[in-house]
Amino acid sequence: MTGKLAKVLKAIDSLSENTGKLFSFLILIMVGLETIEVIRRYILHSPTTWAWEVVVLLYGAHFITGGAWVLKEGGHVRTDILFSRFSPKMKAIVDLLLFAIIFFTFVGVMIWKYSIHAIYSWSIKETTYTMWAPPFYPLKTVVAISFIFLGLQGLAKWIRDLIFVIKGEEI
């Protein structure tokens, strides 16, 4: 039973991590596009109307997909002045409680509302507001999925904390 569960939790971990790693390479495209744009405008006097917008859309996809990976690594910062003095069990209990009330409210509402929003965006083939007007729905899909992955990673953490509190096991 725990073995099977551990496998599922591991799968969620690697999903978060690999997604984060994959999307982290967007930064290279952003750097390249901006540099080419400066050259085009300053040296060739023929800027594009779309480069900055592509960069902005990539930037949006970049950071939002990283949320689950950061959670997996325990990288979302907290005020640990009291927390760091708790025993491991106490830490897990506090997290169980606060993740249930606060984290899952946040991620639950974001998944719920943002998925509806992304579906709507597809249904009207929404574009951005600029004159170049690229499709907006791919980015919105990425955001919705990112919140789902964040929720999954949070669930994995919660189950781990629960098992730790009950059985004292770390899986």
């Binding site: 405008r41 006097h45 023929s46 800027p47 109307t49 600029t130 004159m131």
Partner: peptide, 21 residues
Amino acid sequence: GKKMRTSDPRLLEKNGVAAIT
């Protein structure tokens, strides 16, 4: 060939102005 910030580049681009939004 000059650089102009505008919200609507359609006409400018056709006339060689470097339109930037």
